[in-house]
C-alpha cells in the first residue's frame, strides 16, 4: 500500500490524540480512586471519632456510677448508724420507762410478807405487836441498799419520791392505804437480796425481835404499770 503524506499526518494526529485520551483516562481513574480513598478515610475517621466520643461518655458515666455508689454506701452507713442510735435510744427509753413504772415488768426476785402478830398478850401494848411504817421503810431501804431494781408494796410501785407512813391501823403508800399484811416484792439478784435480808442481826432478825411475823422467799415477780 502506498503511504501518502496525508496518512502519515493523520497517524501522527491520531497518535497524539490517543495518547492524550489514555493519559486523561488514567488520570480520571486515579482521581476517582483517590476520592474514594479520601471518602473511606473520612468515614473511618468519623466512626472512630464517634467511637471515641462514646467511650468518653461511657467513662464519664462509669465515674458517675462509682461516685453514686460511694454516696450510697455512705448513706447506708449513716442510716445504719442512725438506726443503731435509735435502737439504743429506744432501749434506754424502755429501761427508763421500766424504772419509772410505765411498763409492766417481770423478773426473778424476792418477796417479804410482814404480818401483825396474831397473838397479843392481854397485858401488852398492841402497838408493839403490829407492823409500822418504819418496818416497811426498813425493809425497803435495806433492799435498795442491796441493789433492788424495782420494789412494790401490795402491788404499788415504790419510786424515788414515794412515801410510806402509818395512819392508825393502815399503811399509806403514796396516798393509797393498805391494811396488813404487807407484801413487799422486789426484782433483783435474789441471792444477794436474800443474803442482805437474812444477815445476822439484820433486818429480818430485827423484825422478828419486834414480834412481827415475817415470810420471805424467792419467786418470779410481775409488776403492773402504774
Amino acid at each position: 500500500m502506498h503511504v501518502k503524506g496525508k496518512h502519515v499526518i493523520l497517524s501522527l494526529v491520531l497518535f497524539v490524540f490517543g495518547y492524550l485520551i489514555a493519559v486523561s483516562y488514567e488520570q480520571a481513574q486515579y482521581l476517582l480512586e483517590e476520592n474514594e480513598i479520601a471518602e473511606d478515610w473520612d468515614r473511618a475517621f468519623h466512626y472512630r471519632q464517634q467511637l471515641i466520643d462514646f467511650e468518653e461518655r461511657n467513662n464519664e458515666l462509669e465515674r458517675e456510677i462509682n461516685s453514686l455508689r460511694l454516696d450510697l454506701l455512705e448513706t447506708e452507713a449513716q442510716l445504719s448508724e442512725e438506726q443503731a442510735t435509735l435502737m439504743s435510744a429506744v432501749e434506754l427509753k424502755r429501761k427508763l420507762q421500766a424504772y419509772v413504772g410505765e411498763l409492766a415488768i417481770n423478773g426473778p426476785g424476792v418477796f417479804v410478807t410482814l404480818k401483825d402478830q396474831e397473838y397479843v398478850p392481854s397485858d401488852a401494848n398492841v402497838n408493839d405487836y403490829i407492823v409500822h411504817d418504819r418496818h416497811v421503810q426498813l425493809v425497803i431501804n435495806e433492799l435498795l441498799s442491796a441493789g433492788a431494781e424495782a420494789i412494790q408494796v401490795n402491788g404499788q410501785r415504790i419510786f424515788q419520791d414515794s412515801h410510806v407512813y402509818c395512819v392508825g391501823p393502815v399503811i399509806t403508800v403514796d396516798g393509797t392505804s393498805y391494811p396488813a399484811p404487807f407484801t413487799i416484792e422486789v426484782i433483783g439478784d435474789s441471792d444477794v437480796l436474800l443474803a442482805a435480808l437474812t444477815l445476822e442481826q439484820g433486818v429480818i432478825d430485827q423484825l422478828v425481835n419486834e414480834r412481827i411475823e415475817v415470810e420471805y422467799g424467792t419467786k418470779q415477780i410481775e409488776m403492773e404499770p402504774k
Binding site: M1, V8, L10, L14, F15, G18, Y19
Partner: peptide, 21 residues
C-alpha cells in the same frame, strides 16, 4: 490501517506510561 495502528499505539503508550499529572 496505519492511522488506526498509531491510534492504538498512542492509547497503549498512554495507558502504560503511568504518567501522572
Amino acid at each position: 490501517w496505519l492511522s488506526l495502528l498509531f491510534l492504538a499505539i498512542g492509547i497503549g503508550l498512554g495507558l502504560l506510561s503511568n504518567f501522572s499529572i
